[in-house]
Design a protein around this nucleic acid. Structure first.
Length: 556
DNA sequence: ATTAACGGCGCG
DNA sequence: AAAGCGCGCCGTTAAT
């Protein structure tokens, strides 16, 4: 895995692209090449080697033209993604990267222009971006000087592979059946109407709501108006949240909940969403690896990570193709067991369902209790059923609970916390420290003290969750990276290749020719095993998947 | 008129 | 359904 890496840095230099080869210590391996933008893909293809990490400021800008030429790269080093990790990591504190003044590479990645067809190398290098060779050397130095270079190298490799996968997924797009989607909209909302108008079904529901509340001019889209209309009707409610409304009996509740459900479909995934995001039968989502502090991905535009179950049946495999959908079962608790070395919790997860395994230890009465207790431990629940179950969970799994507890305490002390591979939480800002110290001083008023306690606990819950969510994100990145490599080896005799099309925290989707569905499913499982071994070598806990092969995402 | 915060809800 | 975490996006409302 870690056999001598080689870096080939691609960067704009006037009208040319400069390709500079360096070894893993950052030493030049020869004179740089000057390339015409149109020749970059051929150059990459000719120089592709399993040891080479293609290095650039932004995968999302540099990679699409290469992909457009039909060339796929195996490994990369994304300077922006890696900078973000090294800037913050407790393992590289005090390094040149951590202490350098902020520059343009610390900003959000630029928006990719269009759907990736154009040659983005023609765009002049962003102002203020550091020289990539200098930047790479600083990054390599920071890693080499850290107490655990191996962890960080793995993290940077996985993060960069995530960058490649994200770009490939955006360019490929999620196969989308607009006809099926439109049929759904017509069924639930009525015929299409111009933007800004209420479709027929919503108008009818609105009329029923006004009628039931005796409020003829009520705007059902205004929480304020709805709340006061409900209260005028004598209902004891403090908000218009569906969860609260559904506990009440009144003629308005049914149409109101139905209205909320359907208006949500209209505004989030209605006709204008289709017009904006689905191009040539594909939803081109813009994924942002590392977009969340914990290392989870974010997405920009189209709500790619919040596709409601309602519309998933519009994700349809092409004729003769299948969707292979896989999700990791109970990922976060398994990660917690592994990272804390809790062999009792690992044993509970060995036979199959981890929550059932916990029930079998006698710590909790049933599966639901196990689930809420474990999630409550990870999230920092104090009240309710999950809060009450914590003591008995802590007796059964002291290592696991101890890990999240100590993360919470560290957070409350204002310290950073760090994932398995070395991604650290952002340090609390000065305002946070001021608030806390002001309240703890003798002059703190009761209100200040209570406010301070509350933000302390908040920081504790964030930190507790960060280490687990962040390490789970690392597992998922390793899974994705390994899967990506395995998929590259699969191809039909006619040359059709499976496409990675979707990734959602603990779930992946591959669009594959039917005859490759079984090997793809096998690759997905093998990749999960690899990820577990990579992150937690020798620790006896499996990472089982639920894998389905379907024609549309609604069936998964 | 534009921007920011809020309530609400979708996903994990 | 439970209460704790992490997000993005919408329309409304308040602030500028």
């Amino acid at each position: 895995m870690q056999t001598e890496a080689m870096y080939c840095v691609l960067t704009n230099q006037g009208d040319e692209i400069l390709a500079t080869e360096l070894d893993e210590r950052g030493e030049l391996l020869g004179d740089p090449w000057g390339l015409e933008p149109d020749d970059v893909a051929d150059f990459v293809d000719a120089h592709e080697d399993p040891r080479t990490r293609w290095t650039w400021h932004d995968t999302g800008l540099a990679y699409p033209p290469i992909l457009a030429a039909g060339v796929r790269v195996e490994r990369a080093h994304d300077l922006r993604l890696c900078r973000a990790i090294l800037r913050r990591s407790a393992l590289t504190e005090g390094s040149g990267i951590a202490t350098a003044p902020r520059d343009a590479l610390d900003e959000e990645p630029p928006l990719p222009a269009g759907s990736g067809a154009e040659t983005l190398f023609e765009v002049p290098a962003g102002a203020g971006l550091p020289d990539p060779v200098t930047e790479l050397r600083r990054q390599l130095k920071a890693v080499a000087g850290s107490p655990d270079p191996g962890r960080l190298r793995l993290l940077l490799a996985a993060e960069s592979a995530g960058g490649l996968a994200a770009t490939e997924m955006r360019v490929a797009g999620l196969p989308w059946d607009s006809e099926r989607h439109r049929a759904l909209l017509t069924e639930l909302l009525g015929p299409r109407v111009p933007a800004g108008q209420r479709p027929l079904v919503l108008e009818q529901l609105a009329a029923r709501i006004r009628d039931a509340l005796d409020a003829p001019t009520l705007n059902p889209d205004s929480p304020q108006e709805v709340l006061s209309a409900l209260q005028s009707a004598g209902l004891q409610v403090t908000s218009t949240r569906s969860a609260e409304l559904s506990r009440i009996e009144h003629p308005v509740i049914e149409p109101l909940l139905e209205y909320k459900k359907r208006v949500r479909l209209l505004t989030a995934n209605g006709w204008s969403w289709l017009d904006t995001w689905v191009v040539d039968g594909r939803f081109h989502a813009d994924f942002l690896p590392g977009g969340v502090p914990s290392g989870r991905w974010a997405a920009r535009g189209g709500g790619a990570l919040q596709l409601p179950k309602q519309v998933r049946s519009a994700v349809v495999a092409h004729p003769g193709w299948k969707l292979v959908v896989a999700d990791a079962a109970q990922l976060e608790p398994r990660v917690l067991a592994a990272m804390s070395g809790d062999t009792a919790m690992a044993a509970a997860g060995r036979a199959g369902d981890l929550y059932e395994g916990i029930v079998a230890t006698g710590a909790v009465p049933d599966r639901n209790a196990a689930k809420y207790a474990v999630l409550g431990a990870i999230y920092g629940a104090t009240a309710g059923q999950s809060g009450r179950l914590l003591p008995s969970l802590a007796r059964a799994f002291p290592q696991a609970l101890g890990l999240v507890e100590s993360a919470a305490r560290a957070g409350e002390r204002g310290e950073k916390v760090t994932t398995r591979l070395g991604r650290s939480s952002p340090a609390p800002d000065g305002r946070w420290r001021d608030l806390v110290s002001a309240a703890s001083g003798a002059a703190g008023t009761p209100a200040e003290e209570s406010r301070a306690r509350s933000i302390l606990r908040e920081r504790g819950r964030f930190s507790r969750n960060f280490v687990v969510q962040g390490t789970a994100a690392e597992w998922a990145l390793c899974w994705l990276a390994d899967l990506r490599r395995r998929l590259a080896a699969l191809r039909t005799p006619e040359g059709q290749a499976p496409e990675l099309v979707y990734f959602l925290h603990d779930e992946v989707m591959v669009h594959a020719p039917e005859e490759l569905a079984a090997p793809v499913a096998e690759a997905v499982r093998a990749a999960a095993d690899s990820a577990g071994n990579l992150l937690f070598p020798g620790f006896p806990i499996p990472f089982p998947l639920e894998v389905t092969v379907v024609d549309d995402y609604g069936q998964a």
